[in-house]
């Protein structure tokens, strides 16, 4: 049995020293590569970004039990790998995440028609995914309205990308000896998102000058933005799609 370990340890994949360090090649394009190793790396990236939205979407949209949703999530990605689903994506027709959601809907519908639970074993690929954390998140969040499941998937996609980017930012800044940058960013942006502290408060708290707080936060923000754009570059097939997704997620055109 081949076990792929993706979550949570691989969240920094694809960044510095990671999978596509030089060209930031699109994982969607690479998913159709002749090179097995490249295809496999691309698949890992796609799973890392999408497994959580897929799992939650199955739980919410079809009201599946946790066990069924786990099976369907595993089944979906494994079938995608085996049948090379992602290679069929045509960027002229839709965004990749819309394509993936449509594939998922088709997959779940087929599985339901076949009225069988997916039992995978033997030589099948089993993905090591942190379903418990996904369940914890579902328990914490308000369920969406029944007619808003598409928007829910989009929101979960954004949450997944930004979550991966935060983890990558933490890893990079810590590795670069800039822990204080990440601690400032975490305190200013994530600790109390509804009422962030002022720069003056941060300066007092971290025993820094206000000007250092301004500079460190500017640097952390710059890195974060770069990481998010890299993630998007990897998870889109064309430049146009990349720009569209960047506009959706960040609000502006990337360079």
């Amino acid at each position: 049995m081949l076990v792929r370990g993706l979550m949570p340890d691989d969240t920094d994949s694809g960044l510095r020293g990671g999978r596509f360090p030089i060209t930031r090649l699109s994982a969607i394009v690479a998913a159709g590569s002749q090179d097995q190793a490249e295809r496999s790396r691309a698949f890992d990236l796609l799973v890392a970004a999408y497994w959580m939205p897929v799992y939650k979407y199955i739980r919410i949209k079809w009201n599946k039990s946790s066990e069924d949703a786990k099976d369907l999530t595993q089944g979906f990605f494994v079938t995608a790998l085996e049948k090379n689903f992602f290679h069929r994506y045509d960027p002229a027709r839709a965004r990749f995440r819309t394509f993936l959601r449509t594939c998922l809907e088709g997959f779940v519908s087929n599985e339901e028609k076949a009225a069988r639970r997916i039992k995978r074993g033997g030589n099948a690929v089993i993905l090591s995914l942190d379903f418990d954390s996904a369940e914890d998140q579902l328990a914490l969040a308000e369920p969406p309205a029944p007619n808003a499941t598409d928007e829910y998937f989009e929101a979960e996609w954004a949450r997944s990308i930004l979550g991966l980017a935060v983890e990558a930012l933490r890893s990079e800044l810590l590795a670069g000896g800039k822990e204080i940058y990440f601690r400032l960013f975490d305190r200013y942006v994530l600790e109390d998102p509804d009422s962030p502290p002022s720069y003056k408060d941060l300066a007092r708290e971290f025993d820094l000058s206000v000007s250092n707080v301004t500079n460190y936060l500017a640097a952390a923000r710059r890195e974060f933005r770069r990481i998010v754009l890299e993630k998007l570059r990897e998870l889109t097939a064309t430049d146009e799609e990349f720009r569209r997704e960047a506009r959706t997620l960040l609000g502006v055109d990337p360079q």
């Binding site: 994530l190 998102p193 500017a218």
Partner: peptide, 28 residues
Amino acid sequence: MKWLSDSMVRRLREEADLPDLGGTKYRV
């Protein structure tokens, strides 16, 4: 991976949306 609430996602998007004024004498 740290779970991001809706408020955190909103803040992160705002932060990532802030322009990089690194090459100027201004800081956002």
